[in-house]
Amino acid sequence: MKTVVQEDSGIKNKNTQHAIKNDFAFTLKSTCLDENYHPSSKTRLTTNFANLARGANRQQNLRNALNMINNRFNSLAHLDNPKGDRYHVTLEILTVTMSIDDKGGTNDLPMIEVLKTNIFDRKTGQQIEGVAGNNYSSYVRDYDFSILLTDYNKDKSSISVPENYGDLHGKLYKCFVNSTTYKEHFKKSPIICLSVSSNKTYTRTEYQHPVLGYEYQQDHYSLTDEYFFKMGLKVRFFMPPNSVAPMAFYHSGDLLNDYTDLGLISSISTMETFQKIYRPEIYNANSVAGKIYQPSLKHEDYSLTRVEYDREERSRLAVEQGKYAEEHFIKPYKNILENWSANFNL
């Protein structure tokens, strides 16, 4: 794993003439995700790639997943690609850690992990930058959804959210993606691609994008949508060509014009592969979503991939890692975080 850069956030406190002494410092590390990848002890184990890279069949799991990504990429990037092997996609795991105090008290806690795609064109020999974002994970998000929200709704008949729910997480995300560090290393803002919600209904529109496919619209916003809005992200839903269900694309800029076709294809091929593995009931179903579509994890007419996955373990680890964030970040730095959040403006 290589450290790319470290930078103080330099956020100022409006109530003083000086910077807050405990400025946040981000460290960005990059790790190659290939069939030889082994999760670090500092990696969130609920991430798609870490979940696959454990157990007796870890190497075959990774090899199969990476082959699926490359095959899907070439099927979408079919122009001047008669053999379906012109492009090769490689993946980097980007781990963002954050330090609050001079002692580096939180350097062992990855705040955010995402995947970045890189594309190699075998015909021209050109290396093409893909898209950052894709699989998105965060310890604070684990805390918000698996600890805070669960405790808040423990004795309630319907789900509601606490006041200022998601504010801290959203501001931490904005602070990083708008930092000089991010802008020096990435030309475009991230795309975070997730599964559609199983308790929402989606209606296909007449708009069809050449790469993203048919656009869908949902009946109302979800809790995840609201949470991501606080990160400065909006959402659109598209079902790419030869897919069986739409995916949610969270973005801050212009999804249709800010990215190249190959960049969008790299995001689709990567995240559709993971969704086929983790939610085969939706994304590896044997029937295609209709004009009006409601996803269901109880759907029985689907196919399994040749990649092993333990969904129950992943849910359990989300709770464990949410507790870890609470104990090592939320509680010990409560006053600093509240002060910083109250004075953060972007």
Results as ranks from 00 to 15, higher is better:
residue 276 K to W: 04
residue 159 I to A: 06
residue 326 E to D: 08
residue 174 K to Y: 01
residue 320 E to R: 10
residue 228 F to V: 03
residue 67 N to M: 08
residue 81 N to T: 07
residue 8 D to R: 12
residue 149 L to Y: 00
residue 211 V to N: 05
residue 198 S to R: 09
residue 135 N to M: 14
residue 225 D to R: 11
residue 246 P to M: 03
residue 320 E to V: 07
residue 91 L to Y: 03
residue 62 L to K: 04
residue 176 F to K: 06
residue 279 R to Y: 02
residue 203 T to E: 11
residue 343 N to C: 09
residue 26 F to K: 03
residue 230 K to D: 02
residue 200 K to Q: 11
residue 316 R to C: 10
residue 286 N to F: 03
residue 193 C to D: 04
residue 129 E to V: 04
residue 214 Y to W: 10
residue 225 D to Q: 09
residue 67 N to I: 03
residue 116 K to C: 13
residue 193 C to S: 10
residue 125 G to A: 11
residue 119 I to A: 01
residue 144 D to C: 11
residue 153 N to T: 03
residue 32 C to K: 13
residue 142 D to M: 13
residue 49 F to I: 02
residue 136 Y to F: 15
residue 62 L to V: 04
residue 311 R to P: 12
residue 155 D to V: 07
residue 93 I to Q: 15
residue 345 N to I: 07
residue 183 K to P: 02
residue 166 G to T: 01
residue 335 N to W: 07
residue 101 D to L: 06
residue 44 R to S: 10
residue 34 D to Q: 09
residue 202 Y to R: 09
residue 69 I to Q: 11
residue 143 Y to F: 15
residue 85 D to P: 04
residue 240 P to W: 08
residue 36 N to H: 13
residue 290 G to L: 02
residue 240 P to C: 11
residue 172 L to T: 05
residue 170 G to Q: 07
residue 275 Q to W: 01
residue 310 D to N: 15
residue 203 T to H: 12
residue 199 N to T: 14
residue 198 S to L: 05
residue 258 D to H: 06
residue 214 Y to I: 02
residue 219 D to P: 01
residue 142 D to A: 14
residue 48 N to K: 03
residue 11 I to G: 01
residue 59 Q to E: 13
residue 39 P to V: 04
residue 342 A to R: 10
residue 75 S to F: 00
residue 101 D to A: 03
residue 334 K to C: 06
residue 120 F to I: 10
residue 162 P to I: 06
residue 14 K to W: 07
residue 218 Q to S: 11
